[in-house]
Amino acid sequence: MIRIRASGAILAQKESMTESLAITKISDLANPTRFLALAARILPWMAGATALLFAIGLYLSFTTEGDYQQGDTVRIMYVHVPAAWLSMMCYTVMAISAIGTLVWRHPLADVSHKAAAPLGAAFTLIALVTGSLWGKPMWGTWWVWDARLTSVFVLFLMYLGLIALNRALDDPSRAARVSAVLILVGFVNIPIIKFSVDWWNTLHQPASVVRLDGPTIDAEFLWPLLIMAVAFTLLFFTLHIAAMRNEIWRRRVTAQRRMAARMAGKEE
């Protein structure tokens, strides 16, 4: 009995040590210097994997059959859908970072949502314009103010607003806190975008890949779409990590210049 209790205590101690090791590893990443070292190691591999996946995805996008109704125009889907998914995923990454800023005051959290905003705006712009270019030959119109298109347009405006806000405020920590609150308030738009095609009568088709009953899209189109989606996602994370690294460097430059000015002031 005593032996069982002793081994239980040892097990609990081991579990607690493993847990604290995991927490230490996560908190290690909160250190910008360690983050920069990690970024330098993984960025070349991520860039290489992105280029390879884009090569495969683009090859498949242009060699698979056209749709029986849409013909070759279906190929627009391979850039439009991944960009649309990323526009929402980027905002979700920003919302998680915003929680990191407001709750844990994580040193990299504000760097993360500041660096992600221009990337999100760019992917949303791609989704809007390619959607419009797909809509003209298929729907007969470039644009309609229906729930899906309008909510994605609102998302684009939100990205632009967040970029402007970050640039308008001089104090980075104040800008980060204000942005974080706005990001979390604006997150309500993400489920609206996702479910707009189910909740309202829209010209946009309902979901055909991410569905509870599985994808309704043929495998001929699904594989190139999934490979392009992974390629776009990797591109986003590669650019996000690189943009975070640049933002850390930018803050160091500002801090060092301020230090140099203080030193010069003391000498005078």
């Binding site: 125009t73 190929r75 627009i76 439009h80 314009v129 270019l133 797909w134 003209k136």
Partner: peptide
């Protein structure tokens, strides 16, 4: 034209 514009812009 629509396909080329979409890929070109992306």
């Amino acid at each position: 034209f629509y396909i080329a514009m979409s890929y070109g812009l992306t």
